[in-house]
Amino acid sequence: MSDDLLHRIDRTLSRAADAGALLPIRTEQTPIRDAGIDFTVRWVSTLAHKDAARVEAAVRRDPDFNPFLPPDPELTIGPLGDEHLGVLNKFPVIDRHLLIVTRRYEAQTAPLTRADFIALATVMAASGGLGFYNGGAEAGASQRHKHLQWIPDATGTARLSRFTHQLPQDLPAGEIATHPALPWRHCFLRLPPCGDAVSLGEAMHAAFDRACAAVGIAASAEPMPPYNFLVSRDWMTVIPRTCERHENISVNALGFAGSLFVRRPEEIDTVRAIGPLRLLAAVATPR
């Protein structure tokens, strides 16, 4: 990500916080290790009771309300190409959480396009981070308007490397691998090195089509079946979904990068009792 875009994000964060448009959700976190894979479970801080109301607002699904037509100007970073805008997440759990929103309405179940991937790559080309997508309500999406998402690399955040470090590191670009410890249908693809946003976006698009075919999804289906995809500068994964939650624990794409979120601290015990891998398997397609 260019310094200019990073500065725009930080200026917008400051402006939105001063205006009261940004309503971060304060969390505490605890680690859980499962089959040699490190997970982080975030939970809403008991010291910030008002954040419980923010969580409810963040996940509320109102078919008559579209927060992206238009997006709040206090939260809007600006253009990301001709077809997308960068918009801050109003209720961030992770700092600098960015939404990449189509300017015109498209459904969250619509196929992802070349333009979508190039907009995401515009953010990721220089500074990496993690891009992800919740393909429909059953995959964890709370808004119907198409939006990809991005979070920066930071200690304790979701990272594909929690899983990919156990994959063959000499896997050629474009080749498919599966993780032996993951009991849900998935695939990982290695991405080629790319020097600019357009080539990175096109590489992501090609990898996505190939990954969808590998897990039995038609990448051009309208509407798409529920799925999550996650991408770093090096790897991409696609996971078909069957439902949004298990034992009242909601799971979105970040769960498949090792980051789970619960509303109450007692739900940490639920996650621990089920086990993160079994929890994820319960909302995905069996392998």
Rank of each mutant, 00 (worst) to 15 (best):
L75C: 06
W150I: 03
A16Y: 02
S161Y: 04
Y227G: 07
R144A: 05
C187E: 04
A16T: 09
I94C: 07
R144Y: 04
R245Y: 05
I32F: 03
A137G: 10
S142M: 04
I268D: 00
R159D: 03
A281V: 03
G258R: 01
G201N: 10
P168C: 01
A173D: 07
C243S: 15
V59I: 15
L22W: 05
H84G: 08
R162A: 06
A211D: 03
G275H: 01
A115K: 10
I151T: 05
A154Y: 00
L160W: 02
F117W: 14
S199F: 14
D18H: 13
V41A: 08
R159T: 06
R11W: 04
H145D: 11
R42A: 07
P183D: 07
L200V: 09
A58K: 13
A219C: 10
D18Q: 14
A119P: 05
P226W: 11
L277S: 04
E267Q: 15
V123K: 03
R103F: 02
A48E: 15
T237C: 10
H246I: 00
D51S: 08
I100N: 05
F68D: 00
R272A: 07
G128N: 08
L279Y: 12
P31G: 04
P67F: 05
M124D: 07
G275T: 00
A203F: 14
G135D: 07
V231Y: 08
L85I: 11
H165E: 00
V231W: 01
V251P: 01
A126F: 08
A284R: 07
V215E: 03
R159K: 12
H84I: 12
R26G: 11
I37P: 04
M124G: 10
R185V: 01
A197V: 04
S45N: 06
W184Y: 15
M204P: 06
T46P: 13
D34I: 04
R96E: 09
A121R: 05
P223I: 02
L280V: 04
P111F: 12
R104V: 11
A137Y: 11
T109I: 11
A126S: 12
A197F: 07
A119T: 07
R190E: 00
P73D: 00
D95P: 06
F163H: 03
I25A: 10
G136T: 10
D10C: 00
H186A: 02
L69A: 15
V87H: 03
R210Q: 15
D72W: 10
R33H: 14
A214H: 12
Y133L: 01
